[in-house]
Design a protein around this nucleic acid. Sequence first.
DNA 1: TAAATCTTTCAGTAAATTTTGAAAGTTCGA
DNA 2: TCGAACTTTCAAAATTTACTGAAAGATTTA
Lengths: 168, 168
Amino acid sequence: MKLTEAKQQFILNWGVLGTQWGINRTMAQIHALLLVSIEPMSADEIMAELKISRGNTNMNVRELMDWGIVEKILKPGERKEFFIAEKDIWVVAMRIIKERKRREVEPVLVVLEQLKEVEGDKNDKDIKQFISMISDIQKFSNQASKGIDGMVKMDEHWFTGTLLKLFK
Amino acid sequence: MKLTEAKQQFILNWGVLGTQWGINRTMAQIHALLLVSIEPMSADEIMAELKISRGNTNMNVRELMDWGIVEKILKPGERKEFFIAEKDIWVVAMRIIKERKRREVEPVLVVLEQLKEVEGDKNDKDIKQFISMISDIQKFSNQASKGIDGMVKMDEHWFTGTLLKLFK
DNA sequence: TAAATCTTTCAGTAAATTTTGAAAGTTCGA
DNA sequence: TCGAACTTTCAAAATTTACTGAAAGATTTA
């Protein structure tokens, strides 16, 4: 398999994985494309490579920047904007996890906290079991958070150097 | 807030969270409903509660059973089938994580392994960076796996007893 | 300040996913 | 072996989500 083809395969697979985890296909593909691209890419190049529209490109690149895993850079003497992805996979993963937690999980936790204040006799069997269920979810969430924090700290230099870091 | 209302809120929120993580809304809602229901529920009861069709109910309950977090039970003398959810949140979470890994992540890892066998000079800058990117993803994936396994073992009795366990 | 070049927005369209409901399938008791 | 009670299937419809492309907005340079 040629390098170009391998990169395409990578992009395609990354797109599918994204879809399954609630991330839109194009966004995941642009991310993959930038991950395997040494040079920063312009919107036009991304459009051409993935065969998508300008609007689509713009929206998803912006979203990737919101997630903090893609950056806009300007080349001296060039009018166009170029984009690069954070190449350190560990950093990428942690940003994604933190962001998803903040955006999606935490709002639910706020609601759960409220739900615990359900009216009625706290000794009532039904109410007891409901509160206990909610508490367990909260406990789980806390444990998971701690686990992840542990992972963040886990040997910060676990990965061997790569050429990719040229862009850091 | 009344218990009934609180349960509804829980179900709704669980549904939204599911959607964001690539799980269909109804499936997440049925799961939530069974989580907060003390008694096993029949398809008819689920349909009525969530206002969904028989077909939809059937498909999603089956899917939940495939994930190993909902079980079918038969009541003696009853023709209908009833369903209960695994109530231990820790067990639920671990099943989901393991299943998603198996179904969604591992197939990608297989592809990645293949992609490392890209043709060409392994000293070529482009090829080097591509392989190194793939390797980093593999390494990350391994570390995460280990981290999760660690969590599984982490104090297996972290949670205090709940009435929910009556159904275990 | 006008024109050229590039970016952003968003209404309309397209694609993907989910849901329905009726028909077919199954099981069981009489 | 019939039919009542229930479950499963799946084509079509509904809904949700993503994408396009043209127009408006911004920025730079001449």
